[in-house]
Design a protein around this nucleic acid. Structure first.
Lengths: 225, 225
DNA sequence: CAATCAATCAATCAATACATTGAATGAGAG
DNA sequence: CTCTCATTCAATGTATTGATTGATTGATTG
């Protein structure tokens, strides 16, 4: 029952090779050696690995047949052995890159619908306004703000935002809004706020959604409309 | 002084990958998975690795992003992840083969002058003939044998050797000889004998050297010459 | 030959990796 | 809901691996 697993010894040999490549120090050393014959001490300087440690890793590489040595005076020069060594390294590098890209894509997937965290619904907005948990930021031009805005909203047009950040409290969540879904002003504002470290969200519907919901507004034209 | 060795983190990632490939069991599992989706237990049977152990190695492969899983009923099916995984395996295999060939060549180097062990000097030959330690084998054509041969030699022409091996004792060392240094008959005979497991050597000088040394010969023409 | 330099060896310790065992989970089947 | 099957988890003991230190070898220089 045990002999089912008697596999070709080539697997052991490949595993040995792979294990030899399975240490960053050895990869770094190989990388340098690949550029030309180098003595041990030069390698320690290039790699920053302690002398004795470098020597040990080099011997490991040598045992595995990946490098060869030659003595010149008191120094021992290491060079790449022949054989398709660089192919293996290239293949590994390529696979690592592939993997890294996939991870990057995964991150982007969760970043490309940050809408849930970025956007705030009207319901949540109203609720948190009542609890005084947020600060409303109207980023439309001053004229539009004057014509009507959400209750208690501060007006800082996007192009002035950078210079007037000091007017915003750090301890509350900033909710930016503008003319509505097709308007990018509040999105731009968010980029600025988040870059500066503010906790900030966006009311995507903006002033129009607020209006059509029949909620109270501040501002002259709507005072009694 | 320590920061000289701050290398690109890609080396760590590659090292992780390589270390993942650095175990024969995982290579075997990968090998099977590469042929198509397989459940854990099927893999244990194909590989002969204990169940829990198989599972652990599979998870290792999964963590490294080399395989992916899918549940089907109670079974979990493992398949190769995408990316240039097989390239890496092929490159490693090729490097291992290269290395193996080089080792084979090294062995051949020490085998290609096995003359010391293969050839027997006239002195040693005579001594061991006296001690009855060897069997002399004349591989020349029967006519030449009849015309004269070393004392006690058996005659089996090379082209009959394969069929007549039974005539040779297994417990003694066979010493083959033929027409001399430039004659390959005895070398061919040796190849056959050794392939069949006989302890055998070659008297390279052959019949001519024996003659010129003035030693006794058997056979008509030389009985009194 | 003593002194020096480059590299390796040897010994030690901490950290990891593997195999094995038995328990725990998850999914169907009765 | 219990039972079984496939797989995973958790815990344990052992073996390897890697880093560090200090001693040692080999070759060169004065």
């Amino acid at each position: 029952m045990k002999n089912a697993g008697v596999h070709h010894p080539i697997f052991d040999e490949i595993a040995d090779l792979a294990r030899t490549l399975g240490h960053a120090h050895r990869l770094v050393l190989l990388r340098h050696i690949a550029d030309g014959e180098l003595a041990v001490e030069q390698l320690t300087q290039l790699s920053g690995i302690a002398l004795a440690n470098t020597s040990q890793h080099l011997q490991h590489l040598k045992r595995a047949g990946l490098v060869q040595t030659r003595r010149e005076g008191k120094r021992v020069l290491y060079r790449l052995a022949d054989g398709p060594i660089e192919n293996v390294l290239a293949a590994l590098r390529s696979l690592a890159n592939h993997r890294r890209e996939q991870i990057r894509e995964l991150i982007n997937d969760t970043m490309s619908r940050p809408d849930r965290l970025e956007n705030i619904s009207r319901e949540e907005l109203v609720r948190r306004m009542r609890n005084d948990e947020i600060v409303l930021l109207d980023v439309r031009p001053q004229e539009e703000y004057a014509a009507g805005h959400l209750p208690g909203a501060i007006n800082i047009p996007v192009d002035e935002l950078e210079e007037r950040l000091a007017e915003l409290p750090r301890e509350k969540v900033i909710v930016a809004y503008c003319r509505g879904v097709q308007c990018v002003l509040s999105a731009d504002a968010l980029a600025i706020l988040r870059a500066r470290g503010w906790a900030s969200r966006r009311f995507e519907g903006g002033f129009p959604e607020w209006l059509t919901s029949g909620l109270d507004v501040d501002g002259m034209n709507y005072e009694s409309g």
